[in-house]
Design a protein around this nucleic acid. Structure first.
Lengths: 135, 135, 135, 135
DNA sequence: GTGGTCTAGACCACA
DNA sequence: GTGGTCTAGACCACG
């Protein structure tokens, strides 16, 4: 699982983590019982305060998505509500629509937009690969 | 134009307004030169403070989306981004990256993602066209 | 950096701050990467509300002069205007026009005005150079 | 006397008028006893509300710069404090310095800046000439 | 400690 | 009526 933070989005960092982990959990990117990255290394990797990661995990526990076993770590609980395909599409549609609108205002045409999307996909896939190579 | 605030999303209220108005402007729900709702009545309707709406409008103004004339109101501007190409690419990259990350966690693969992007682009362009056909 | 507010000038306080800080930044009184005074202490020192200083800093940020990192502070950015050539010309034209109008009413003729402009340019360039020589 | 308003400077329109007229009065652009333009035509010419011009004149009367004779118009009072040459230079220096700083931030170099200054001077002189031709 | 958001309410400038 | 500025003070996110 690759987590990515945008410090300037206005959205609190801990909520970005919560959303990303919740999405992964509800879509099979994380399996039941699988351990989440532990707080300290993750905080270091993301260049974020440990408290911020801890807060995200606390929130996730509160939502019943994960379970914290003191001294052992955090684990994904039985996935109680996996997203349906349409639910996933809905979330994603919202994100994509925002990018489409931004492109329109910035007067970026369809081709340039699609090219940029592909470029970002490639860049992201490279990052995922690097990470899995390191693990 | 229908504006709706979600007070629990964690996203600042003024940014929710900015996004929704930008969407309306880009998709033709609002025409060039047309006045936006005045700050005070809108604030009342949304049960939000006047300053919060004012902040959203100020943000839209310096994104070059609207023009505000003190004493008269706020109006949709001819779209014409004042930013350099690289500044625009930076903004757009941020938007796209958010969608890419969401797709990754939702386990939506590259092809499905690209298909959805194209579908949203088409849908958006259709919407713009419909509105302009009504002229 | 010395900041001074004139409450009777009719010019909004936050704009006075913006101008003075821009001046300090441009003339080398503030170096790239250097932190600006924090909002709260500065507000107290100037006997102005915290929000007023925050508004000035926000304005500076979207002019691309400073960068603010929530939780850490505000820092002077590498100067690099994000505006298109025409947008920049527009801003500058406004500034110049104000000076031209003042010269007209002060009965300062074209040659004297141009001489003064050159003198101020030289003076400014000297100041910038001195500061950089101190490195 | 050519008056010029900038609606987006943040400075109240009536104060822009006050300053310009005061400068002209103190520098010989207006002579003692000379009538000022009457309110209605001036408001029309500047595309400003009559109240705004009236307020400027009221302020000037308050400052003792002009005298209003009901039914006849407004006249410049005996100029009690003409600006010295250095006083004029000081006011003008402030205006010019702001333009110089703006040029620096906008990365406009010396030559381009001087060219723009000359261009604006020419444009302004044309305007003055047109106006005097019409009178 | 930092900056960010929001509220409530005042006064000003302008049409 | 419009938007703009400013204050005072609360709470949040983050380090």
């Amino acid at each position: 699982m690759l987590l990515q933070i945008d410090f300037k989005s206005g959205k609190p960092v801990y909520l970005q983590l919560v959303d990303q982990i919740r999405y992964a959990a509800a879509s099979g990117g994380l399996r039941t019982g699988e351990p989440l990255p532990s707080i300290r290394p993750l905080a270091e990797e993301l260049r974020v305060n440990r408290n911020t990661v801890a807060k995200a995990y606390a929130e996730l526990e509160n939502q019943g998505v994960i379970e914290t076993i003191p001294g052992k770590g955090c684990f994904l609980k039985e996935s109680n509500s996996p997203f349906t395909k349409s639910a996933r599409a809905k979330i994603l549609t919202k994100e994509i629509d925002e990018a489409v609108v931004a492109a329109h205002h910035l007067q970026v045409d369809r081709d340039a937009f699609l090219a940029l999307v592909k470029e970002r996909l490639d860049s992201f896939e490279r990052k995922v690969k690097e990470k899995s190579d390191n693990d």
